[in-house]
């Protein structure tokens, strides 16, 4: 490397519009690369340094805090329209380090590392002593609640059988004693009324995802299952360009960016279909 003046960074205000622009690029990157859980939104910019980059451009070194929203990553709703998960619901924060290259006015993420963690039980208790806390997904009560809710949903379905994609949230409610769960589902090639072995059902090539919220309440000798599912618009099978110029139709890949893979504006609006509640 040629001798020259040492590279020094430029200090930018964390609330500077340019910093906020870069932070938004970072948050969009997070949400388009999340494979499970909920979309995140920007809460605070912790640090920013701007390094000159040879031969051209600048590297923004950024530390940001995010908060979980109530929109599942499979939900095509833009994150700007999603509600932030409140403290009383047991909030989850993200702590992220980013490096973003700005060159010719264009931003590109060159490094990203995020950790997410739920608020502490003590902090939740401070603002709400009786609020339910997050529960582990592998707890027998959670597993049972999800199975019962999915079975109830499919039992009411006159069409497609939906299979579980992931459990995304679970809480134990003290009074009445109940288990609250949230989970994602996907349409399969099976008919709900005819399924004998769910393991033989396969997700459709034209993916249709849904998001369910359920409460399973324990009663003496029985239980009540209340489940509400929102089905999202199908994600079309898109043609993939091939090296020889032909297009081959393949299923859209795993839910990397559901918002980007919904139909173009000329199609009907991406309205979600709300199904339920069913008890």
């Amino acid at each position: 490397a040629p001798h020259g003046p040492e590279l020094t960074y430029r200090q930018l205000n964390c609330d500077d519009p340019e910093t906020e622009q870069v932070a938004q690029v970072a948050v969009d990157y997070i949400n388009s690369h999340l494979l499970q859980g909920y979309k995140h939104t920007l809460n605070q910019i912790d640090k920013v340094k701007v390094w000159p980059r040879r031969p051209f451009g600048e590297i923004f070194e950024l530390e940001i805090d995010t908060l979980e929203t109530t929109c599942h990553v499979l939900d095509p709703t833009p994150v700007a329209n999603c509600t932030v998960r409140q403290l009383v619901e047991h909030a989850v924060e993200g702590d992220c380090d980013f490096r973003v290259l700005k060159q010719d006015g264009q931003f590109s993420v060159t490094f990203a590392k995020c950790d997410s963690s739920p608020d502490s039980a003590e902090d939740v208790r401070k603002v709400c002593p009786d609020c339910p806390l997050l529960a582990p997904f592998n707890h027998s009560r959670v597993v049972h609640a999800v199975e019962a809710a999915l079975a109830a949903f499919n039992a009411q379905s006159n069409g497609t059988y939906f299979q579980l994609v992931e459990v995304s949230r679970a809480q134990f409610v003290p009074l009445p004693v109940s288990t609250r769960v949230e989970f994602a589902v996907a349409a399969t090639d099976c008919v709900a009324k005819e399924v004998t072995d769910p393991a033989k059902c396969n997700p459709l090539a034209e993916k249709q995802y849904g998001f369910c919220k359920a409460t399973v309440t324990e009663k003496v000798g029985q239980e009540d299952v209340a489940v509400t599912c929102t089905l999202f618009q199908t994600q079309p099978v898109v043609p993939q360009p091939q090296p020889d110029g032909t297009d081959v139709v393949v299923p859209t890949s795993a839910p990397v960016d559901p918002a980007a893979s919904v139909s173009p504006p000329a199609s009907p609006p991406a309205a979600s279909l709300v199904v339920g509640p069913m008890v």
């Binding site: 605070q44 912790d46 932030v84």
Partner: peptide, 27 residues
Amino acid sequence: PVVQPGVAGAAGPVVPPCPGRIRYFKV
């Protein structure tokens, strides 16, 4: 007599550049 030099630019409170504003709440 010894005269103290004037202090320039000490008008308002200095806002630290970082961290930035909290948009929702601190966890």
